[in-house]
């Protein structure tokens, strides 16, 4: 990864963020339906990131120790456990299953 690549990657990522903040926000404000859509986007997009981080192994899907750790976290979240307990339990479960 050269300096040019780092800068190109950074400029692209920053542009997308600014485009969303200015262009995307203007679009959402202009079309009333988009306002509710805007409040639902975090749930949909963050869930997709969770699915990818939990099940993806390269280009395939897998259920492994990491998935078990996240499953334990989900149960603890459902039981309204503190966030620190949730992440420690996820890491511990995953690490123990990999022993």
């Amino acid at each position: 990864m050269t300096w040019t690549i780092i800068i190109l990657l950074a400029v692209g990522v920053a542009s997308l963020r600014l485009l969303g903040m200015y262009g995307g926000t203007a679009l959402v404000r202009r079309v009333p339906m988009f306002e509710r859509l805007g409040s639902l986007i975090p749930a949909a997009v963050v869930s997709a990131v969770i699915a990818q981080l939990t099940f993806a192994s390269g280009k395939s899907l897998t259920i492994d120790a990491r998935s078990a750790g996240v499953a334990i976290a989900a149960i603890l979240i459902w039981r309204r456990a503190p966030i620190i307990v949730v992440i420690l339990a996820a890491a511990t479960t995953t690490a123990l299953l990999r022993l």
């Binding site: 639902l40 986007i41 975090p42 749930a43 949909a44 963050v46 869930s47 990131v49 969770i50 981080l53 939990t54 120790a65 990491r66 750790g69 996240v70 976290a73 989900a74 979240i77 966030i83 949730v86 992440i87 339990a89 996820a90 890491a91 511990t92 479960t93 995953t94 690490a95 123990l96 990999r98």
Partner: peptide, 28 residues
């Protein structure tokens, strides 16, 4: 050390309140 499970677990905890509402649950 199981650190790869930490980020999805954190994200799940963060959107938990959204998941407790039906539209957020369906979106997720």
């Amino acid at each position: 050390l199981g650190l790869d499970a930490v980020f999805p677990a954190l994200l799940l905890a963060i959107i938990a309140n959204l998941l407790r509402q039906r539209p957020g649950f369906v979106a997720a």
